[in-house]
Simulated assay, not measured.
Amino acid sequence: MTANQLQLYIQLALSIFVLVIAIPFILPKTRNKLGTLRKNRHNRTSFWQNIADGLELIFTPIVLIIKIIIGFFH
């Protein structure tokens, strides 16, 4: 695998990831659901659940990209 192929695959993976993230914000039906707040959670559990969701949102794509890169080298 050449460096150009690897760069192409990484760019394709990142562009697909960005599209998957951007599509819910473009569609009006999902945009209304994203803006509503849930009132039934307790404040402390809400804080910890938000931290867990944020960490998952950050690390899941990073792990997937690393798995894709490792898969290309096997």
Rank of each mutant, 00 (worst) to 15 (best):
I58Y: 12
L12T: 03
D53C: 03
K67C: 07
I68R: 00
H42Y: 06
I69T: 13
L27M: 15
F73V: 07
L55H: 00
A13L: 05
Q11R: 06
A3E: 10
T30G: 10
H74L: 08
G71V: 00
N50T: 13
F59R: 03
K39P: 02
F59W: 13
L64D: 02
G71T: 02
S46R: 08
A52R: 11
I16A: 13
Q7P: 00
I23Y: 08
I26T: 09
I70L: 12
A52T: 09
A22G: 04
Y9M: 11
L37V: 11
Y9D: 07
I58D: 09
S46K: 08
P61A: 04
I26D: 01
L55Q: 01
I10D: 03
A52V: 09
R41P: 01
N32S: 13
L34C: 09
M1W: 04
H42W: 07
Q49K: 03
V18G: 02
Y9H: 05
L8C: 04
L8A: 15
R38M: 05
Y9A: 11
P24Q: 05
A52W: 07
L64N: 02
F73R: 01
A52I: 11
K29T: 14
L37A: 15
F72H: 04
A13V: 02
I62H: 04
H42S: 15
T30P: 06
A3T: 09
L55K: 01
D53P: 00
H74N: 05
A3M: 08
L12V: 05
F47Y: 14
V18T: 12
N4A: 14
L27R: 13
I62S: 10
I70P: 00
R44F: 14
L27K: 13
G54F: 14
L37R: 06
N4M: 07
I65Q: 05
L14H: 01
I70T: 02
P61K: 03
E56L: 13
E56G: 14
V63K: 04
K39E: 14
P24M: 08
Y9T: 03
I26N: 12
R41K: 14
L6A: 12
K39S: 15
S46H: 04
K29Y: 14
A22C: 12
P28T: 01
I58Q: 08
I16P: 00
I51D: 03
Q11Y: 07
G35M: 09
H74K: 06
L8Y: 10
T36G: 03
Q49H: 09
F72K: 01
L12Q: 12
M1N: 03
F25M: 11
N32P: 00
I26F: 15
G35E: 09
I10P: 00
F59D: 02
P61T: 01
V63L: 14
I62C: 10
L34T: 04
T60F: 15
K39I: 09
A52F: 09
E56P: 00
F59M: 11
K33F: 10
T45Y: 03
D53M: 10
Q49C: 11
L57H: 14
I68S: 05
T36Y: 03
L12M: 02
L14V: 07
I65C: 10
F17R: 00
I65R: 03
L27Q: 15
V20G: 07
A22H: 06
G35H: 05
Q7V: 02
P28A: 07
F17L: 09
A22N: 02
I70N: 05
S46N: 12
N50F: 09
I66M: 10
R31P: 01
R31S: 11
I62V: 15
